[in-house]
């Protein structure tokens, strides 16, 4: 699997002055940022939801389905974010990440393992040399309610442990009260603390209330140098939905049109079935473009999704339905 180094390099360019003048101008100060974000085109809610629903009806069969299942497996960020997580549980997860289905060694490994920062070290040790990323949430996940020093220390802890990807949460309180500059600065500061690690910015769309806000938050994160924009923490309902992911895919597509850089999208939370996953892949293909159909630019934040993908994969190979007794418990 190709590493994400190109995206990181491109993202660094963006901050150091690569983007066109209107984007540089946008992040100059609070006022220009507000002007830029509020000048983004408004979203036709009915049209968006209908488009998402129509694309979701597309039927994917046979070889295309088999391809989609393997692609989706390689895009899974296998996640455990529980208060009850232990090093043992993380080790079980990394074993599953390396070889998702022991009976079928040709199943591709997952994209990354996603854990809390104090357990990132365990995952890094287990996954050394496999090419599977270690993502760590940081910045007072999931609420993001703490001060800048704590958030940066949280990030530094994960980076020191060897995490290759950092999933940060934005300050939704600041965003919703219109203090965009604060949110932008914070993302930039965390980005700086990340070093070589990829930065995924969690917008927590379930708390942003409107699609217009999702579009603004997406652009804000992209302006600040996010390598990925991620829908949710998985702790708030609703988590990822198709329409919200559409909006975010539009943002990265338009960002690419403006700057030539590819940034990624990660829907997370509530994606449990193969059918759902394939719907997301269709959306990626149709909204952003085929270039995004790679784990470098599209990920699923999920835990139970992987088992369903494996069961469906077996169904395709063996010709009969599989059951939960035939895949590992996680």
């Amino acid at each position: 699997m190709p590493s994400g180094s190109t995206t990181t390099a491109q993202a660094t360019d963006a901050v150091s002055g690569g983007p066109p003048p209107e984007l540089t101008e946008a992040s100059r100060d609070e006022t220009s940022l507000r002007r830029f974000l509020h000048a983004l085109p408004g979203i036709d809610q009915v049209g968006l939801e209908q488009r998402a629903a129509t694309l979701a009806t597309r039927s994917v069969k046979k070889d295309a389905k088999r391809w989609a299942i393997d692609a989706a497996i390689s895009m899974v960020d296998l996640t455990t974010l529980e208060g009850a997580d232990t090093p043992g549980k993380v080790r079980a997860l990394t074993a599953k990440a390396r070889r998702p289905d022991p009976e079928y060694p040709d199943v591709p490994p997952v994209g990354a393992v996603c854990v809390y920062p104090d357990l990132a070290g365990v995952a890094v040790r287990d996954l050394a040399g496999t090419g599977i990323g270690v993502a760590s949430v940081a910045t007072a996940f999931p609420s993001g309610r703490s001060n800048r020093q704590v958030k940066l220390a949280d990030t530094a802890m994960a980076v020191e442990a060897g995490a290759t990807e950092i999933d940060m949460v934005i300050d939704r309180g600041a965003f919703l009260t219109g203090r965009y500059g604060l949110v932008l600065e914070e993302i930039q500061a965390v980005k700086a603390a990340c070093g070589d690690a990829h930065l995924k910015v969690i917008l927590e769309t379930g708390e942003l209330a409107t699609y217009d806000n999702v579009r603004r938050a997406s652009w804000l994160a992209l302006l600040a140098g996010a390598d990925f924009i991620k829908t949710s923490t998985g702790k708030v309902s609703p988590a990822a939905t198709l329409p919200v992911t559409h909006v975010m895919l539009q943002a990265v597509r338009d960002w690419h049109a403006l700057t030539g850089e590819h940034r990624g999208v990660k829907p997370a939370g509530g994606i449990r079935g193969t059918k759902d996953a394939i719907r997301y892949l269709v959306a990626v293909r149709e909204v952003a473009g085929p270039a995004w159909l790679t784990p470098r630019l599209f990920r699923f934040g999920a835990s139970s999704l992987l088992n369903d993908l494996l069961m469906q994969r077996r169904r395709q190979l063996t010709g009969h339905y599989s059951g939960a007794d035939y895949v590992s418990v996680d």
Binding site: G319, H320, Y321, S322, G323, A324, D325, Y326
Partner: peptide, 9 residues
């Protein structure tokens, strides 16, 4: 045949 082969039955 689908019922008889289903692994979760």
């Amino acid at each position: 045949p689908w019922l008889a082969a289903h692994a979760d039955v």
